[in-house]
Nucleic acid binder design. Structure first.
Length: 569
RNA sequence: CAGGGUGUGGCGCAGCCUGGUAGCGCGCGUGCCUUGGGCGCACGAGGUCGUGAGUUCGAAUCUCACCACCCUGACCA
């Protein structure tokens, strides 16, 4: 491809809307253009990247025995009513009406449609079947951000597997786990597979695949001493080994004017944050308030809290009026002393003595509070996020926390959809059975952003080889002036292309600074420069995108040596 | 959804407080010049100042409403 015949739209200055590096660079390199909030055009250069990612995904899915199909983006409401998700899915589901005022949605996912396909087509026990597509999804997220990282319209690879029994589901689940590892490895990404919460989807097993990046929105707890890795939402926070000390202090009510947060509290009372207890009120299963206690520096984990019988799901913080009625105080001064309702303490809190906690009166706290002495023994449960330094749940060391960007997620759905949508087959005995199901997603567009987040420098993007828009750029310096430069560059372009190298030939006769800056910005991994200076010695130059300096390459045999460098990595 | 912010040529911004017919840099076009890191000079094209209403002799500027986009939060006690 010649730059003069391509649509390159690089920007010197980044549009003001972009905050994170990948978003800024994608806009500056002209990979994407925003049409409206969370909706992007993939420009020719960006589309080349996207297609390369898709190709790797497709090859590995095919290799693992999955079969590609393509399902509609627009789906009738009836299917979603059948699964119950027309109501359950909520406002993220983009609903539309046709001219007859019939309800449709733009698919955020395809369990319903694929289930409908399979129940019509598959009646026999000759399973498993694993169907996938690479397709546009729409999710009307509350707040899209970071460009294509969290867009409303995006490309997803989604696969759905169908099984006669759980053992078969387990086998395909393992195969998909391996397949995903191959995909992210081939794409040149540093990633980690972690155990994940199955969330609202239910089922037993679930793993997320995270591209590691400090700017990632998710936190991963992992153990360097073992292979344990889990989303912090799931990672178990064990009870401290030391038993609860005996009370040493007296319960004292202290005036804490204006103190609303834990940060205010320990600053005002000058106590260590580890001696404070945060009391949060959520709605109980019966609608009455439930008091949840975690140590001041810990965070309540709503996913864990929601699994408790006492708590209503989905977990909701109690309304300020309800809190006032139950405690006689505003949030910020709550505590267990004197409270008649249900109290749940985190395991860490259960091992604390002489702590500081709200006194159920505005601007007042207790110091020297003790379980058992000052209020009844609460229910003890794991209700907080794991933090760095916690013992690993597998007993083999201490947890550390990493940031990641979720690019893949695999689930065992079991029979959640197959029973709702009557997905049955006849077994060998001619008896009707419900299928087991799995589903497996990859955020294809998000991978591009995540790869850039992980691979860039101050000059621009550094694409991993497998997803670079071109393999090599060929820059000719002063080709308008020097016939020798022009002829050599043209000849090299032809020969490299003929040798199977995907070359972008910068034939614009721009000044060298312009060409270099553009080519570095768009992240092509290899560069060859033809200039009068080198040609005097019968040489051109080669430089890798991460190299500090160029190295000369003899013009004789240049195609061969350049090709080996391009393919050699 | 709540709170905050911003809308002025393709991009980045100034002008608004204190009303008087719109400006800078980049980019774009043409010519000259230049050719190893976003070069220089000259000329030029391009803007209903987000939309609507109001105040005023006069509105980018003041008032009101609406729209769009961005940021922060929704794991806060």
């Amino acid at each position: 491809m010649r730059v003069s015949q391509f649509l390159l739209s690089t920007l010197k200055e980044a549009p003001a809307e972009a905050e994170v590096a990948s978003h800024r660079l994608m806009l500056r390199a002209g990979l994407i253009k925003r049409l409206t909030s969370g909706v992007y055009t993939w420009m020719p250069l960006g589309l080349r990247v996207l297609r390369k990612v898709e190709a790797v995904v497709r090859e590995e899915m095919n290799r693992s025995g999955a079969i590609e199909l393509s399902m509609p983006a627009v789906q009738p409401a009836e299917l979603w009513q059948e699964s119950g998700r027309w109501v359950e899915y909520g406002p993220e589901l983009l609903r539309i009406k046709d001219r007859h005022q019939r309800d449709f949605c733009f698919g955020p996912t395809h369990e319903e449609v694929v289930s409908d396909v399979v129940r019509r087509e598959v009646k026999s026990y000759r399973l498993p079947l694993n169907l996938y597509q690479i397709q546009t999804k729409f999710r009307d997220a509350i707040r899209p951000r970071f460009g294509v990282m969290r867009a409303r319209e995006f490309t997803m690879k989604d696969a759905y597997s169908f099984h006669a029994d759980k053992a078969s589901l387990d086998a395909t689940y393992r195969e998909m786990h391996d397949c995903y590892s191959r995909i992210f490895t081939r794409l040149g990404l540093k990633f980690r597979a972690v155990a994940a919460d199955t969330g609202a989807i239910g089922g037993t097993a679930s793993h997320e695949f995270h591209v590691l990046a400090d700017s990632g929105e998710d936190a991963i707890a992992y153990c360097p001493a073992s292979d344990y890795a889990a989303n912090v939402e799931l990672a178990e926070a064990l009870a401290p080994k030391a038993p609860r000390p005996a009370p040493a202090e007296k319960l004292q009510r202290v005036h804490t004017p204006g103190v609303k947060t834990i940060a205010d509290l320990y600053a005002y009372l000058k106590v260590p944050i580890e001696k404070t207890v945060k009391a949060v009120c959520v709605d109980g299963f019966d609608g009455r308030p439930v008091l949840m206690m975690v140590r001041g520096d810990h965070q309540l984990n709503l996913a864990k809290a929601g699994k408790l019988a006492q708590v209503k799901t989905p977990v909701a913080f109690s309304a300020p009026e309800a809190i006032r009625e139950a405690f006689g105080a505003d949030p910020g001064s709550l505590g267990p002393v004197g409270f008649k309702g249900a109290v749940i303490a985190d395991r860490t809190v259960a091992a604390m003595a002489d702590f500081v906690v709200g006194a159920n009166a505005d601007d007042h706290h207790y110091t020297g509070a003790n379980i058992g002495r000052d209020f009844p023994e609460p229910v003890v449960a794991d209700i907080r996020n794991a933090v760095a330094g916690d013992p690993s749940p597998d007993g083999k060391g201490v947890l550390e926390i990493l940031r990641g960007i979720e690019v893949g997620h695999i689930f065992q759905l079991r029979t959640k959809y197959s029973s709702a949508m009557n997905l049955a087959f006849l077994d060998e005995a001619g008896k009707s059975q419900v299928m087991e199901m799995g589903c497996y997603g990859i955020g294809v567009t998000r991978i591009v952003a995540a790869a850039i987040e992980q691979n860039h420098d101050e000059r621009g993007i550094i694409f991993p080889r497998a997803m670079a828009p071109f393999e090599l750029v060929l820059v000719a310096i002063g080709m308008g002036k020097s016939a020798q430069v022009r002829e050599t560059a043209e000849r090299l372009y032809g020969e490299l292309t003929a040798a199977g190298v995907d070359v972008l030939f910068d034939d614009r006769d721009e000044r060298p600074g312009v060409a270099f800056a553009d080519m570095e910005l768009i992240g092509v991994p290899h560069r060859v420069v033809v200039g009068e200076r080198g040609l005097k010695n019968g040489q051109v130059e080669y430089q890798g995108r991460r190299d500090a300096k160029a190295e000369p390459v003899g013009l004789q045999g240049a195609v061969k040596s350049v090709k080996s460098m391009v393919c050699g990595q």
